[in-house]
Design a protein around this nucleic acid. Sequence first.
DNA 1: CACTATTGGATAGTGCCGCTATCCAGTCAA
DNA 2: TTGACTGGATAGCGGCACTATCCAATAGTG
Lengths: 200, 200
Amino acid sequence: MRISELSRTSGVPIATIKYYLREGLLQAGQATGATRSEYGEPHLRRLRLIRALVDVGGLPLAKVREVLACVDDPPASLHCALGTAHDALGAAPPDARGADLAEAVVAGAGWRVDRASPAFAQLGAALAALVDAGFPAGPAALERYVRAAVDLATAEVADVPRTDTAAAVQFVVLGTILYEPVLLALRRLAQQHASATTLG
Amino acid sequence: MRISELSRTSGVPIATIKYYLREGLLQAGQATGATRSEYGEPHLRRLRLIRALVDVGGLPLAKVREVLACVDDPPASLHCALGTAHDALGAAPPDARGADLAEAVVAGAGWRVDRASPAFAQLGAALAALVDAGFPAGPAALERYVRAAVDLATAEVADVPRTDTAAAVQFVVLGTILYEPVLLALRRLAQQHASATTLG
DNA sequence: CACTATTGGATAGTGCCGCTATCCAGTCAA
DNA sequence: TTGACTGGATAGCGGCACTATCCAATAGTG
């Protein structure tokens, strides 16, 4: 497959493919001459993955690069792979507002988590915004959300393949990122349904 | 409160406040002279809300403007307000990939939803990305996520205040947007906990 | 063998977004 | 009077994700 066909099949413009090649997001094709390279299935899959991370996951290219590096060169520890995925999903806000709110929720849930992780800061910032807007943000008010998070996370972790390390890393990193938009879209649709049936 | 104090209290630079005023995101202060205006609590709250929608919710300013317009001038129907919130949360991708996958899930859940809504397209795109990456995306595989979405959405809709329409609209719009980052952060922390306890 | 289309590679430019910087004249408090 | 501050206007900036152009070297076509 030449670059023009790769472009046609994937729907990504040639100029953009060249850009991804330059940026090292897409591995170079097999050179078959000075002015020709051959691309295959892996290139197409990679290209689709990049677009998915960008368009569906909303990641900037710099984060996509980190994620791909992790998938290409899997770390020994799955916990570390999870960290890469979480790092890619939005940086921690500069101000550490709401750390106390986050701490209360985490303590209430009995979780063993890293207080320096981006997710913890994100929870704090999100809860502080909630409080500012007049919503309750205590452990009691968030009970449902915590329960849902625990249900999903334990099932997800249980589903991690134990055989192949590379496959497990891929599962953890991509699953963490790609299921987020699914969860959000489902919540919105469920709200739509609930709204249609009970609010008119 | 003068603009400098508003800036100091909120942590937003004066130049940025002026920019928000120009853009109509922040209402003008009470003019007390040709070169002086008085700002109050509402301005501070509005400013914090803008920053929350941008920093925590990740909305572009154009969407923030729409959300604020909806809150300022509440529509008669809560269903319509929910639509505004959903519209603000990421536009539908151009290609309508995965519509069949989304349809299967929605039908499986028995939801009554608008197939033309952004959330439906987002679900399709997210599921297509999942399939591309080798993950299962059928109704059975997504059962947990659907269940979590239903639990949360029905509770949320049930919590909508019935007394004041303006308060209800604000609850729906802001709640829809501001609880998303909370849910995502909680899932990540729960994953961290599950990973730490069962994967080492 | 001529010719056209395509390619890899390099470089520069574009469009959007969210600010940020500068300037200015008016004004308020000390 | 003086100096800090303000509203208002305009222009510029930095980052990001492309996009456009050019070039010399082919590869396939007739």
